[in-house]
């Protein structure tokens, strides 16, 4: 700092100095160089620098717009795919339900049929069995009657010593049985 101020203090200006910005003999040089510098700057800015920056920014805007467009397109595609997937899923579910319903109905019908057949067969068997029972019972009953008649005849024979007429005993037994 000291050097600076020394240097400034020892400015090579002997007599009364005028104020530098008002020293008119420097004006020509300043204006000359200002003209060259400013015209050069203007030409380079107008012809090269500013169009280049404008181009860069336009390209950037374009690129951003394009990317945003592509992103929107991809989003729409994704949404469409999602919708298609959901539609397919819903269809599949409906079909599965239909199929399940049909299968259930078919199985029910088959089961019902089988049950009916079985029931019919059972009925038949039952009827046959009942008939057999009835036959057997009738036969048994007629056997009982025979045995009872014989037993009654024998008892009468033993008690009385007489041999009763067979059909009279049978009538008596029948009368008892009917009671």
């Amino acid at each position: 700092m000291a050097e600076t101020s020394n240097a400034h203090t020892e400015a090579p200006s002997g007599g009364a100095k005028s104020f530098p910005p008002f020293e008119s003999d420097t004006f020509a040089s300043q204006l000359f160089w200002l003209g060259i510098a400013f015209v050069l700057l203007y030409v380079v800015m107008a012809k090269v620098a500013l169009p280049r920056i404008a181009g860069i920014m336009a390209a950037r805007r374009e690129s951003v717009d394009r990317d945003l467009g592509a992103a929107a397109q991809l989003k729409a595609d994704a949404e469409a795919a999602l919708q298609a997937y959901e539609k397919t899923l819903a269809e599949a579910r409906t079909r599965a339900q239909t199929l399940a319903g049909e299968t259930r109905a078919k199985l029910n019908a088959e089961a019902e049929e089988a049950r009916k057949e079985l029931e019919a067969a059972l009925h038949t068997k039952l009827a046959e069995a009942e008939r057999t029972i009835a036959d057997t019972k009738a036969r048994a009953m007629s056997s009982v009657r025979g045995i009872a008649s014989e037993a009654a005849g024998a008892i009468v024979g033993k008690l009385t010593g007489l041999a009763p007429a067979e059909h009279a005993v049978a009538e008596a037994v029948d009368a008892v049985l009917k009671r």
Partner: peptide, 14 residues
């Protein structure tokens, strides 16, 4: 009549 010099001002403009 004007002398054109290369000046410190010109250098700083450049």
């Amino acid at each position: 009549t004007a002398q054109i010099h290369l000046t410190n001002s010109a250098i700083f403009m450049a």
